[in-house]
Design a protein around this nucleic acid. Structure first.
Lengths: 172, 172
DNA sequence: CATTTTGTTCATTTTATATTGAACTAAATG
DNA sequence: CATTTAGTTCAATATAAAATGAACAAAATG
């Protein structure tokens, strides 16, 4: 029942439970995470930070979402790698605090760089290999094989032109 | 070693194994499937149909990819629902035959309609609910809550304008 | 410098998802 | 109309991915 922590003198975490809006927002981001092939804990953490006004410490996040230390640690790390959250300094508290990056352009750019671009790159390497394979195929099937590889290469090129464009479009 | 099936008189499946190009192409699509959150069998089936010149029957696909009946059946069904493959009629064979749709625009459109659009739609409903929740929040946090919901709504709108544009862009 | 706080790592467990395959339906064949 | 062929369905199983939590490291505190 104490409203202040005995050790720190700071207010304890607002509530272990989530209010209805927090719940709805977090669910939204859990679905989005799933759509993007990310673990649900990523969506939970980002969602909580997105809707919370104050920055939150590791422990707050873990407690309010009922996550394990491991999941919290890895989730925060992952979110940092694509700049979806940032750490902020809170005077008088030695723990790191986190807040959400809410600018769509930055989020999209970070995610693309981290998760989409690498696939495009390895894809390009694959297509190059395919071209060589197709070129040294025995007679009858070669024409068709080569035409399909060209098709893939075109897709690849469209993707390459496309991604930067997406970012620009989202920004404006 | 017979080159013709004893029962049907038709040539047997070209090879149970895959040549190096087939292998590479299929791996490409398996990765893509994974990126898009689809089961690997979907990628395998599409990849095989993409690189194969002739249309293939259910049984060919199952045999060459070492898939179970169930996975083959469900994979083909799923690929049909977003128009990534189509059935073609082969005279003198009562089995359905399949071939890949290789036009990127059609693939993208089908996939978006089937897998992305629904998320946007339920997302919109969620945001509407959030607006109501935010509006009836107790004093101090309401301003912030509402501003965040507005942000989400803007994202949503961008997404809605964005998808059709993507399709157009991919087409040309 | 012993102790507490803060967070990370990673082997194990859990959970979610995809795959399998036997039982089934429906249609064609003879 | 009995039998074979073609394909679907779905309960059981296998697989892959994420979450857990105990052991650990690093830094701050007193």
């Amino acid at each position: 029942m104490a409203a202040l922590s005995r050790t720190t003198g700071k207010p304890t975490a607002p509530e272990p439970g989530l209010n209805e809006l927090e719940h709805e927002v977090i669910e939204f981001f859990v679905r989005l995470a799933d759509l993007l092939g990310q673990p649900r804990s990523i969506g939970e953490i980002y969602g909580l930070l997105f809707i919370t006004e104050e920055s939150l410490a590791f422990d707050d996040i873990m407690t309010r979402l009922n996550l394990s230390k491991g999941a919290t640690s890895q989730g925060l790390r992952q979110l940092k790698t694509f700049s979806a959250i940032r750490t902020v300094y809170v005077p008088g508290d030695r723990r790191d605090h986190y807040e959400a990056e809410v600018e769509l352009k930055k989020l999209a750019t970070g995610f693309i760089k981290e998760h989409l671009q690498p696939h495009l790159d390895t894809g390009a390497a694959r297509v190059t290999r395919m071209e060589q394979m197709a070129a040294r195929m025995p007679g009858p099937g070669r024409r068709h094989a080569q035409s399909r590889v060209v098709k893939l290469k075109n897709w690849q090129n469209k993707g390459r032109k496309f991604l930067p464009f997406v970012v620009k479009l989202i920004g404006g």
